[in-house]
Computed example of a mutant assay.
Amino acid sequence: MGTAWNNEYRAMPATAADFTAEDMFVAECLAAAAQGDCSAYFDLGVAFSTGSHGATCDLIEAHKWFNLAAVAGFEEANTCRSEVADDMTAREISEAQRRAREWLAASNRKAA
């Protein structure tokens, strides 16, 4: 997990109580995504594209997750990926695609 800071500013191991329900949503989606859940891919895309559920707004990550959802057959992801791409540079889109390929390659290695 992460690290929580106490009143004396010493690092303490983070506990579940240190995280909000929004933080847990992203963590749960990441766990489901690791199992290949395409709806979790889509939910992560939404969270990163809107900066909701404890995620920061990150269009590269949003594009990556929408791309993975689209590849997995989640129909609405294509539209969302295109909308996010409208606000991105070519370099950012390239980075998002690279991250999506890395995720797929890592997933394929785990499955083998």
Rank of each mutant, 00 (worst) to 15 (best):
M1G: 13
T3P: 01
A4M: 07
N7H: 15
E8I: 05
Y9H: 12
A11N: 11
T15P: 12
A16T: 05
T20N: 12
A21F: 07
E22M: 12
D23F: 08
D23K: 12
F25P: 00
E28S: 06
C29Q: 15
L30A: 01
A33K: 00
A33H: 03
A34C: 13
G36V: 14
C38F: 08
S39H: 11
A40V: 04
Y41W: 13
D43L: 06
G45A: 01
A47R: 13
F48Q: 00
F48I: 03
S49L: 12
S49R: 04
G51F: 13
S52E: 15
S52Q: 15
A55L: 06
D58N: 14
L59G: 10
I60K: 07
E61G: 02
E61R: 14
A62Q: 09
H63P: 07
K64Y: 04
N67L: 07
L68E: 02
L68Q: 07
G73F: 12
F74M: 11
E76T: 07
E76R: 01
E76D: 15
A77R: 01
N78M: 09
N78H: 11
N78I: 05
T79A: 05
C80G: 09
S82C: 09
V84Y: 00
D86T: 14
D86Q: 12
T89I: 00
A90P: 03
R91C: 01
R91M: 05
E92W: 03
E92R: 00
I93A: 02
S94N: 05
Q97S: 10
R98D: 14
A100V: 03
W103R: 04
R109L: 14
K110N: 15
K110V: 07
A111H: 10
A112R: 12
